[in-house]
Design a protein around this nucleic acid. Structure first.
Lengths: 218, 218
DNA sequence: AGATTGAGTGTACGTTCGTACACTCAAAAC
DNA sequence: GTTTTGAGTGTACGAACGTACACTCAATCT
């Protein structure tokens, strides 16, 4: 004589397929992990903390990830989706030539604020995460450098620049932009942030001046 | 009827004052901590691990530090002694003008190898350490930027450069050099490292070209 | 309608954690 | 020579850790 209740799971009326439900929990785990390691690191994050935050029992974690490290790799992928969205924004906007810097930096700053947790995760785990996570992040950043290098070809024309030098310039720009993101993330005061962003603009202009006067191959 | 043995402590014949002995243990703790957090982070380092590594009982840790965080702050100070030694080397060497870059980078690379653990510690904990540790590291790096800025005055003459722009240029150079140190630390292969160092040289030259053609204040 | 599946449960384990407290015993102070 | 001091010991605790194992029970499959 089972009472056939219209089952109430997680305080939501269910017309949810099994897969949807699983995906929802999975998302909750990813979000909880991102939130919990915000002021420490993946390497100091325990499976039990995550489970408690999500509201599941510790062993249920394994239904979704093999380990915290595997979860971390997933977060890396997810974070770099944010970054790619940013790059698309940058490429889509097609400002006048001497506005490229201001425009790009503006987009970066906006994305850092909107995806603060993702950027913070990448910056932190790049230096301190589990080995595989660090590797994944650095591979992705190298990929960005290569893409930026090909973008630069379009801007400069390939005449005076060797591919090597383009790659190196690209690395310099990426380093500066990562540095800007880091600086923003560690600066809570909006006033100080404005100064930092302005400084980054000037830095990129300096690099641009250097680039325009550069002659490859010597 | 006490046997008056010539006491053997830590397998060393003792003619050690009490203070010396304490200092020795303290050093052992600092070294052990630096070694143990090499492939994780301070935030994942336990007092018990450190104690076991040193060969003392966990509670004895408190005779030297209040907490892992306090130990971390000490390691920051210690690490920056290494960095200051490097800066002294850079300033002491007084190469021909267009060798400044090569010379400075050479010194940096050498110090990164010789003080690998310290550099790695700073880079990792700057991003992922306990709040106070992160703050201490960033304060010290900002200090470096200011010092470099005053050094740059000597090189450029203050005529065409505003103080602000000098500070900004200094920040760019420091960012690039931190980036170089990070890249070296994550690159085990000496061949790949050579390419990275060469890239950094070119980057600095690009920045230098930009600087030479820069005109402050627009 | 009945059998299968699998996300989530509950209990239970051996470890490790930080820390409290009472101790030892040689160096340092008197 | 006696007292004091303090680095290091030893035990003991409750809490958190990862994980093994047997479970439930609704969605899905047949």
């Amino acid at each position: 004589m089972t009472v056939h209740t219209c089952a109430l799971i997680n305080s939501t009326l269910v017309t949810e397929t099994r897969g949807e439900r699983k995906e929802r929990t999975r998302r909750a785990i990813l979000d909880a992990a991102l939130r919990l390691c915000e002021d420490s690191s993946l390497v100091a994050l325990s499976l039990r903390q995550v489970a408690k935050e999500v509201g599941i029992v510790p062993t249920a974690f394994y239904r979704h990830f093999d380990s915290i490290e595997a979860l971390g790799l997933e977060l890396v992928d997810e974070s770099f989706v944010s970054l790619r969205a940013m790059l698309l924004d940058v490429r889509r906007s097609d400002p006048a030539f001497d506005d490229i810097i201001d425009s790009s930096i503006g987009i970066l700053v906006e994305h850092v604020h909107q995806q603060r947790a993702h950027f913070q995760f990448i910056v932190r785990e790049r230096a301190a995460g589990p080995l595989r996570v660090r590797e994944a992040i650095n591979t992705a950043i190298e990929q960005f450098e290569k893409e930026l290098a090909t973008d630069l070809v379009r801007l400069t024309g390939t005449t005076t620049w060797s591919p090597d030098d383009l790659q190196i310039l690209s690395g310099l720009i990426v380093t500066a932009m990562v540095g800007l993101a880091e600086a923003i993330l560690r600066t809570p005061d909006p006033g100080a942030e404005k100064a930092i962003v302005e400084g980054a603009r000037v830095q990129l202009r300096m690099v641009l001046v250097g680039a325009l006067n550069w002659r490859s191959k010597r």
